[in-house]
Design a protein around this nucleic acid. Structure first.
Lengths: 281, 281
DNA sequence: AAATTAATATCGATATTTTAGATGTATGGA
DNA sequence: TCCATACATCTAAAATATCGATATTAATTT
């Protein structure tokens, strides 16, 4: 019984079909079939019920899946620890909100790279809710998200204090729709709460996937947006964008670095925590 | 990082050299070299210090070894459980003392095979001390050993009550050396204690590896032996061997089935426990 | 200093395993 | 009926692991 087979089983179960798993694992679907069949013949039991609309775990498959998940997690934890012990070369997979990535991370990551040159560091951006999901599934090791964070599921340390501002094309001109990220973005949630309290629950919301796009639309006078001051300032150079701090209690938002409770920080993660502690934003 | 690589590392560490590991793993030594080098280059760190007289773990190798051992144990536990859940086909590796294997196990194993026909059952014989060692290293799942057993390290259930007898070629003729198994046999320890208490500490001891050999020598009048009554009776048919029960408190010895505290019994093991509970010997 | 010994390392041929990609089969819905 | 979706099967080729012979190394012995 090989780890690859277990990984494949977990991937199929997670993505609901052989073909989806093949895409995720960068191989052809026939390989997935072969591996699952090997596992199944090893146990003499079907792991999945195949049918239109994908593959579902059988009862036996379900129990195998649960054990496989914890086994693989332990396997990866050991591998991480050893890579780390071997010379601080354990990878660190970070997540961050778009705006944090743009406004805050360049300085932090530069300092981190300087102190852990060998550690491969990767970054994935997305809204807070999705990042917490990735964290929970162990797809990322630590994520910069808008606080506060559910302390029952994650540890978190304060990283940056952001001031939320309203961005518009002219002072006080809050006409047109609110440009915001897709659902799951906590800044958007804050903005909507603010608008409701200000009696503007009718404001239309336009979803956009990129921060640049949002600012571009706002600059063109198509509407307004809510974003952290730092992030706007970075983009504002040479533009006519106007900013205005949100009223309390919406102005002050804390960005935290969140991790799973059971995550054992690798060297690079410890250094990141030190960097955040040294230079509080 | 493949399981085979970890298994190889553990095997090298356990047996002290690449070539010894190669023998145990049924492959040529160059394979071991290749696998260890792959692991080492993966971590960028040496796992073993090579030298005349074998390979020793480096500090890093030691920590890798410890993690690998627990990981492999978990891996195997999961595999066992799943094979078991898939249809009671999980293997059961038994250990037993020579005399137990000869006198008691045939009936028990027959009943076990009848109730778990699919489960592969293997048996390894040896003296109590070695069996407990195998148990501890998880090389066997359960072992029939002479009680009492250290309850801090093993669970044990009573299996058979044996009456120890002195075997000689003529009634009362306890001349010549004591024929016994190698060190580690608890019957031998009992016999030596008895002899000491009887003021015969000077009795010479001849070690032999097989029970048949011992009885043969005794029958030829070369000396005497101590063994469970049942085992002697099986072999005695048509011989002139004389038996005499040992004085208290040496006569009554309990044979237990011992398992590691953390062993999760597979179906075959549970059935074995039932069989022992039904027909106490 | 040379020879011996007990180890691991290296290398090329071979065998095995895994993969990709083309094709087949089944099934439900337009 | 035809199409789309999804798994199964098969084959050639690519990747990988193994064997077996030989080289290398370092510590002992002579």
């Amino acid at each position: 019984m090989d780890v690859l087979l277990l990984r494949t089983m977990v991937c199929v179960a997670d993505h609901g079909s052989f073909s989806a798993a093949a895409e995720v694992m960068n191989c052809v679907q026939s390989n997935i079939t072969t591996r699952i069949r090997r596992l199944e013949s090893h146990f003499g039991q079907a792991l999945f019920e195949r049918g239109r609309g994908g593959a579902r775990l059988t009862a036996f498959g379900q129990s195998a899946y649960e054990r496989a998940v914890t086994l693989l997690a332990q396997f990866e934890a050991v591998e991480r620890d050893l890579l780390d012990a071997a010379g601080g070369a354990a990878p660190l997979r970070l997540g961050a909100m778009e705006t944090t990535a743009a406004a805050r991370l360049p300085a932090v990551l530069k300092a981190l790279k300087a102190r852990c040159p060998k550690a491969p560091i990767s970054l994935q951006t997305g809204p807070t809710a999705r990042l917490l999901g990735l964290l929970w599934e162990r797809k990322v090791d630590a994520a910069f998200v808008a606080g506060p964070v559910d302390a029952d599921r994650f540890t978190s340390v304060p990283a940056f204090r952001e001031r939320l501002v309203v961005v518009s094309s002219a002072p006080g001109r809050l006409e047109g729709p609110l440009f915001a990220f897709t659902q799951g973005c906590s800044y958007r949630a804050t903005a909507e709460t603010w608008l409701r309290q200000a009696g503007r629950s009718d404001t239309e919301v336009v979803e956009m996937g990129s921060f640049d796009g949002i600012l571009g639309c706002v600059e063109a006078g198509m509407g307004f947006a809510v974003a952290p001051e730092r992030a706007v300032c970075q983009h504002r150079t040479g533009t006519s964008l106007q900013i205005e701090v949100l009223p309390d209690p919406f102005a002050e938002i804390e960005t935290c670095l969140a991790m799973r409770l059971d995550y054992q920080p690798v060297t690079a993660a410890k250094v990141l925590l030190e960097i955040l502690a040294e230079a509080p934003g």
